[in-house]
Design a protein around this nucleic acid. Sequence first.
DNA 1: CGCTATTTTATTGTTTACAAAATAATGACG
DNA 2: CGTCATTATTTTGTAAACAATAAAATAGCG
Lengths: 204, 204
Amino acid sequence: MAGVRAPKILSVKDQIAEQIRSDIIAGDLAPNTKLNEKELAERFGLSRGPIRDVILQLTKEGLLISKNNCGASVNSILDPKLQKLMIKLRREIEVFAIEQLKDKLTANDVADLESILDELQEAFERNDYTEVTKIDISFHNYLIHKAGGDELVNIWYPYVMRMRLNYKRITTGEECVNEHRVILDALKDGDISAATKAIKANIK
Amino acid sequence: MAGVRAPKILSVKDQIAEQIRSDIIAGDLAPNTKLNEKELAERFGLSRGPIRDVILQLTKEGLLISKNNCGASVNSILDPKLQKLMIKLRREIEVFAIEQLKDKLTANDVADLESILDELQEAFERNDYTEVTKIDISFHNYLIHKAGGDELVNIWYPYVMRMRLNYKRITTGEECVNEHRVILDALKDGDISAATKAIKANIK
DNA sequence: CGCTATTTTATTGTTTACAAAATAATGACG
DNA sequence: CGTCATTATTTTGTAAACAATAAAATAGCG
C-alpha cells in the first residue's frame, strides 16, 4: 500500500455541492439564476432534503443567495470595494498559511502538490478552464488545510468562491501553472519570503 | 408610525439558531458537547428537519463541528495562532466598515445605535452577561451590515462567533459599554481616525 | 383597455416514516 | 477475567406526503 494516495471519499451532499459550484464557475448557471429544489432533486436523482442542505451550504459560502419562502438564486457580482477587501483578507490568510508551513511540508505533501500541478497542466492543455479553476483552488486548499485544518479552510473558502464569481474567465492560462510552480518551489526551498511574495502575486 | 422601530421578524430557524448560540455563549453548552437532533427537536417542539438546517448553519459559522453520520458537537477552543489571525482579520473588516460609513450614518442609524447602547447598559446592570455579549455583537452587526450588507455580515460573523467561544467570560463589564460609546461618538463626529482607533481597541 | 381583487398554481417549509450507519450491549472464546 | 466478534439499539441520512407561503393566472370592475 506504500505510496498509494488515498482516494477522497465524498458524501453525496458534497458531490452535489461540487457539481453546482462547477456549474456556476463554468457559467452554466449565470448570476441571478433561480434554483428550483424539485428540478435539482430530479436532476441528481435525490429527494429535496439533501438538495436543501446543499443550497444552505452554498448560500453560506456566498455562491447563492436565499430568501425566506422565496428560494435561492445564484449570487451576483461583488461590489468592487468588497471585492478589494476580500482579496486583501484572502491574501493574509494564505500568507499566514505559508508562514505556518515552514519546515512542515513532508515529502508526501510535496509529491501531492506536484501531482496537483501536473493535473493543472493537463487540464490547461485540454483547454478545460472549469477544471483548471477547480484544480487551482485545490492547490491552495491543500496548503490552507495543512496549515490550519478544517477550521482555517472554513473561513478561507468563502473568499475564494466569492472571488471566482467575479472573474468567471481564467485570465491568461499558462501563467496560472507557472505561478503555482513558483510557490511550490519556494516552499520546497523553505524560502518563506519568496513563497509569500509568490502567493501575493497569484491572488488578484 | 413615525419613529416606530421596525420589529425584527425572524424565521423559526433563525430563532432556534439564536437560542443555541446563546446557550453556547452562556456556557450551558460546553465545548465538545454532542448535540442530539431528536432531543433538540423535542425541546423546541419541531421535527428534526429544521433542526438539521440550524445545525448545518451553526457548523458553517464555526460554532459546531459536524462529521458525517456522527452528528455535531460544540466546537472547542481555537489554536492561539488561528485566534490571533482571526482577531486581525476581524479588525480589518470592522475598520473597513467604519471607513465606508463616513457620512453615511443617518439620524435614524444613530438613534438605533444609541438605543442599542442603552440596552447594553441595562443588561450590564442586571449582570446578564450572556445578554451583554449578544447586544455587544448586535452593535457591531449594525455597523457591518450598514457598510456592506448581508454579504459582509456573512464573512464577518464567523470570526465573532469563533472568538466568543474562546473567551466565554466578559472581561470587565463597564469597560464594554464605554468602549462602544467612544466608537459611536467618533462616528457621530465623522472622525474616522478616532473611530478606527476605538474599534481596534475594542476588538481583542 | 387598464387596473385591482380573487382564485389557482407552483414552490418552499415542515412533518412523518423508512434506510443506513455508528455506537452500545451481549455473548463466545482464549 | 479480558478481548474480540456478533447482535441489538440508538442516531443520523434520505425519501415521500402534507401545510403554508409566494407567484401566476384569471375574472370583475371602473
